[in-house]
Amino acid sequence: MVSDRMAMVLAQLNRGSADGADGLAHLASATVAVIVGADGICAGLGTGAAGKVLVWGGEPVSTGLEDLQFTLGEGPSREVAAAGIPVLASDLAGDLVRWPAFAPAAMDLGARAVFVFPLRIGVIAVGTMLVHRTVPGPLTPGQLTDALALADAVTLALLDRQWPPPDGADQPCPGWAQPVTYRAEVHQATGMISVQLGVSLAEALVRLRAHAWAADRLLADVAADVVARRLRFDEPER
């Protein structure tokens, strides 16, 4: 059974959906994180290799963890998106073999435990919800119950939102988060690299990720350089 505080959160989301309002947009992620015994929480739509669009929660470490996974191509959110079941990493120091690139980078950001839950309706997966802690340790049974209930409610709230943006807009609708994890430039850069090198889109994305990792930069920042033609992959770097 969910806690009384989580029941209040779920009631707020349900009221927002019933009234046609966006209850999630007015729900403070920091408050919800405390309820589930965490230091940060965020949710994103998308389950493929192209990454997710962050749609709720702007706490820097949580959003940074999603950025790391997109840049490195590994991590718990990617496993959850692929398998559709939660990944509960209660101590990242013990996951250096499982995620040799992500785990140390995540700890450098200040995260020591990461818990990721699928956002799904039946067999239809729409995204993931990431919860992190700055100290290692598992969720209690009550916190896990609250997190699972929240993931279900967030899924329904997100599906009530209007997406994609209306009238061909290139940014999310009001109420949607607009962080660096918005992937339009990454898709565009991938296409440009594919043409420059004469390779598939999949290989172009791998090349883009490899460059970002080698340069110790965010994938979104490297993609912006490609789109702005400050960086080409078919000529040597200066």
Score class of each variant (00 low, 15 high):
Asp170Ile: 10
Val114His: 05
Pro179Ala: 03
Glu59Ala: 15
Val199Met: 13
Ala28Val: 00
Gly46Phe: 03
Val222Arg: 06
Gly64Val: 07
Leu218Thr: 05
Gly23Glu: 00
Ser29Phe: 00
Trp213Gln: 14
Ser77Trp: 01
Gln12Phe: 05
Gly168Pro: 07
Val126Tyr: 11
Val87Phe: 05
Pro164Ile: 10
Asp152Pro: 02
Gly198Cys: 04
Ile121Ala: 07
Asp4Gln: 13
Leu144Tyr: 12
Ala169Gly: 13
His211Met: 05
Ile121Lys: 09
Gly73His: 07
Leu205Ile: 01
Phe117Pro: 00
Ala189Phe: 01
Asp216Leu: 05
Ala93Thr: 08
Glu79Lys: 11
Val199Glu: 13
Leu231Ile: 06
Gly110Ser: 05
Ser3Gln: 10
Thr181Ala: 01
Asp167Lys: 11
Phe70Thr: 14
Gly37His: 07
Leu144Ile: 02
Gly94Asn: 12
Gly48Glu: 14
Phe102Trp: 15
Asp146Asn: 11
His132Pro: 02
Glu237Tyr: 12
Pro100His: 09
Ala151Phe: 02
Ser77Val: 03
Arg207Pro: 02
Gly75Arg: 07
Asp4Pro: 04
Leu148Lys: 14
Leu201Asn: 07
Ala81Pro: 04
Asp167Cys: 08
Leu72Tyr: 10
Arg209Asn: 02
Gln162Ile: 15
Thr140Asn: 01
Gly57Asp: 07
Pro86Asp: 03
Val180Tyr: 09
Trp99Asn: 02
Phe115Glu: 01
Asp225Lys: 10
Val80Pro: 06
Arg161Glu: 09
Ala212Asp: 07
Val180Arg: 14
Ala7Glu: 15
Ala157Glu: 01
Glu237Arg: 15
Leu156Phe: 11
Ala111Gly: 04
Thr134Phe: 00
Thr190Ser: 09
Ala33Phe: 09
Gly58Ala: 14
Lys52Trp: 12
Ser200Ile: 02
Pro104Ser: 10
Val32Lys: 01
Ser62Asp: 10
Ala153Lys: 06
Arg217Gly: 06
Gly37Phe: 03
Ala11Asp: 15
Ile193Met: 04
Val199Asp: 08
Leu96His: 14
Leu65Glu: 03
Ala215Leu: 05
Ala153Ser: 15
Thr31Leu: 04
Leu13Ala: 08
Leu96Ile: 11
Val199Ala: 12
Gly44Thr: 04
Ala220His: 13
Gln12Lys: 14
Thr140Tyr: 01
Gly51Gln: 11
Asp146Gln: 08
Thr145Glu: 11
Val227Asp: 09
Gln143Arg: 12
Leu159Phe: 04
Gly142Glu: 08
Gly37Gln: 08
Gln69Arg: 06
